[in-house]
Amino acid sequence: MKRKTENTVAEEFEQSATRLNPEKHVLILYVAGMTPKSTLAIDNVKKFCETNLQGSYELKVIDLYQQPKLAKGSQIIATPTLVRKLPLPLRKLIGDMSDTQRILVGIDLKPGK
């Protein structure tokens, strides 16, 4: 950790970023109550993850009615919202997640548009 040049700092950052499991996706799905829309979204996300991320993901479902404070902290306005926490950058997908193509674009698994 001593005598580091800028170059080595950047390199180290790159390395640690890759070490932190580039495949691992940390996803949080925010829903508002157990509405049909919410359940549909949860189902869709689970299905999507199983098909496209196969085990290298972490999904958390948060009901904002239970934890309303989280809406402010995570800047959620629309529900359902799927937030990709990792890998960076942060991504937000809104909707019932019925459009799989858009999810793929949204979490950078497929080049957009």
């Binding site: 508002a32 009615y65 629309a78 937000k92």
Partner: peptide
């Protein structure tokens, strides 16, 4: 940052406002 993937509503906003 945002991608639309289907139907949604602004319940999140309501919740935030309601909490405040």
């Amino acid at each position: 940052e945002i991608e639309e993937t289907g139907e949604y509503d602004l319940e999140g906003l309501f919740i935030r406002l309601g909490a405040a």
